[in-house]
Structures are given as C-alpha cells and as structure tokens.
C-alpha cells in the first residue's frame, strides 16, 4: 500500500502464512517457536486453546490489575461510607452503632465488583492496544478471512532471525495455503 511517498522500497512488516485449520496453525507456531523466532503472532477467528503455549506468549497483567481494581473498589466503597457516617456527619439512627459493618457490606461489595469489572474490560482493551486505527497485518492479501475461517501466522521483520528468503522457505515447509511478505 502506497502512502504517497516516492520511496519504492517499502518497509516489511514480516511474512504471513495462511492456514485452513487451527491444528495446522498450532503446529506451525510450535515449529516457529522451536526454530527460535521471537516476534511471532497468530491470528484466528476464535480463541484456540494451546495456541498461546505454542507461540510462547504468556501475560498475566490482566488478572493482577483486576485484583488491584477489586481492592481499590472495596476500599473506596467502604471508605466512602465510613467517611460519610462516622467522620463527616455522624448520625444516631435508632441507637445503632455508627460503624455498623453489616449495613456497609452491600455497597462495599458492589463497588468491588464495579471497579474490578471495569478494570477487566479497560485493561484488556488498553493492553491489546485498542482502539488501533491502522495495523500492518491488514495489508495481508485475504486477511479479511482471519475473522471468518482462516488462520494466519506472522513472523515479524523485527525478529533478529528474520530473513526475507530463508523465513519464507521456512514457512513454506509447513504447507500453508499462501505465504505473503507484508508491507509495514
């Protein structure tokens, strides 16, 4: 895709191989990882179990952030009620104690869930780098089927082992439907 510049040697995003079943994608990803490629990514229409292991991708930021979000929610929820009813405006209602913990549980609980749930959503979005208006992978011919019924493996040009011809050879050995070099 030309961007209006005269530069006729566009930078390469990487090589992208297309497969027709999830199993082939997993085995290809496994082989690529074993061959020592680091900057790999796979694209599929639905989550495939075992693909992350095959690619060697592991990320646990979301669960930790959600836990932190839950704690923040709980403290804010409880703190707000404690501040309102004990510190700021103590009010005797029917002789009940000011720190009546059972009556504070529902709001504390709801705030925990609210902040944790919003953290789950927004951390997923942010860590995945969305919204992303442009990404080179969409330059791959036929990539619109990555959301339908095709499975893609990309070896990115930033990989230290990346070599346009050798890597293409390597991918071609896995019997893909096609291999394309994609512009950045």
């Amino acid at each position: 895709m030309s961007h209006g510049y005269a530069d006729d040697s566009p930078k390469s995003f990487g090589l992208v191989a297309e497969f027709d079943t999830p199993e082939k994608l997993i085995s290809a990803a496994e082989k690529a990882r074993q061959a020592g490629f680091k900057k790999l990514d796979a694209y599929s229409p639905f989550p495939i179990h075992g693909l992350s292991d095959a690619i060697g991708f592991r990320d646990v930021k979301v669960p930790y952030l959600v836990f932190a979000g839950g704690l923040v929610g709980a403290f804010v929820g409880y703190g707000l009620q404690f501040y309102a009813h004990v510190l700021d405006y103590p009010m005797n209602v029917g002789g009940k104690p000011l720190v009546s913990i059972p009556s504070m549980i529902p709001i504390t609980f709801e705030m925990t869930i609210l902040v944790a749930g919003l953290t789950a959503f927004f951390s997923m979005i942010a860590l995945n780098g969305l919204p992303k208006p442009y990404h080179s992978i969409f330059n791959t011919p036929g990539f619109n089927r990555a959301s339908q019924d095709r499975f893609f493996l990309a070896i990115e040009s930033g990989d230290p082992q990346f070599d346009s011809d050798k890597t293409r050879q390597f991918l071609a050995e896995m019997a893909p439907l096609s291999v394309h070099e994609v512009e950045a």
């Binding site: 990514d41 599929s44 229409p45 989550p47 690619i55 951390s123 997923m124 995945n128 990404h135 992978i137």
Partner: peptide, 11 residues
C-alpha cells in the same frame, strides 16, 4: 481495530 491476534484472544 480488533485483529484476532493471539495476544488479543489471550487477554
């Protein structure tokens, strides 16, 4: 801009 990447699905 969802692209169905493994990283996307993982998270």
């Amino acid at each position: 801009g969802w692209r169905g990447s493994n990283q996307h699905w993982h998270r």
